[in-house]
Computed example of a mutant assay.
Amino acid sequence: MALLGHVGTLTHRQIAGWGWETDAPDMPLWVLIAIDRKVIGRCRADQFREDLAVEGIGTGWHGFSLDLPAGILLPKEGYEISVRREGDGQHLPGSPYVLEPAIRIVPDL
């Protein structure tokens, strides 16, 4: 099955995007989100996104979002984030992603 998708929001507090299987256009898919190869969440890509509907990507109901509790990802750390289709583990296009540190500590000179 052809897998299309994109992660548009990648922060230390939220991961959001969309995923769609062209061979099952009306079926929402499940995605697994992992940090440094450890699965931290599972989302159903069934949220409506007007941009997808306008572009003719399925029904437009292919968005997903995972809110991360404070402290799971430390702002001064960077991480490798993967977003994969549940079942066969195929990565969304562009995955794995690199989340750079949000805070850089500069020592006093």
Score class of each variant (00 low, 15 high):
D26G: 03
S65Q: 10
G58C: 06
D108E: 15
H6M: 09
G56H: 02
Q47F: 11
G8S: 15
A16H: 02
G60W: 12
L74T: 15
M1P: 12
L29E: 07
E50W: 12
L74I: 14
R13N: 10
I15G: 08
G41V: 07
R49T: 09
G94S: 00
P101Q: 06
I81W: 00
V106R: 10
A2H: 12
E21P: 06
I105F: 11
A16L: 04
G19E: 04
P107A: 11
T11G: 10
K76H: 15
L66E: 07
C43D: 03
R42M: 13
E80A: 13
D88K: 08
V98N: 08
W30N: 09
R104L: 15
D108T: 14
G41E: 01
L52K: 00
A24N: 12
H6G: 14
L68G: 01
T22D: 05
G17F: 00
H91N: 15
V98T: 14
D51C: 08
Y97N: 06
L68F: 07
D26F: 07
E80I: 15
K76G: 05
H91W: 10
E80L: 12
D67H: 06
W20R: 02
S82Y: 06
G56C: 09
L73Q: 01
G94T: 08
E100D: 15
I33K: 01
H62D: 09
P101I: 08
Q47C: 11
I81V: 14
Y97I: 03
G19M: 06
A24R: 13
T59F: 02
R37K: 15
S65R: 13
A34I: 02
W18E: 00
T22L: 09
A53V: 08
S82W: 09
E100G: 12
L10A: 04
L109N: 08
W20S: 02
W61C: 12
D51V: 13
P96A: 07
L109A: 09
G5E: 09
V31K: 00
P101A: 07
A45I: 01
G19P: 10
P93Q: 03
W20K: 02
G58A: 08
F64Q: 06
P69Q: 13
F48W: 09
T11W: 04
Y97K: 00
L29T: 05
G71Q: 03
L10P: 04
G78M: 03
I40W: 01
Q47L: 09
V83T: 08
G56I: 06
G89L: 02
P96Y: 01
W30Y: 13
A24K: 13
T9Y: 05
G5S: 05
R104G: 13
I40K: 12
P107C: 11
T11S: 02
W61D: 12
L109I: 14
R44Y: 06
T59A: 11
L32S: 13
V54P: 01
L3Y: 08
L3T: 00
V31E: 03
L29M: 00
D67W: 08
L52C: 07
F48D: 12
L109T: 14
P25Y: 03
V39D: 13
R13W: 07
R13V: 08
V106S: 12
E100L: 15
G17T: 01
P28L: 01
A34L: 06
I35S: 09
L32R: 10
R84I: 10
F64T: 02
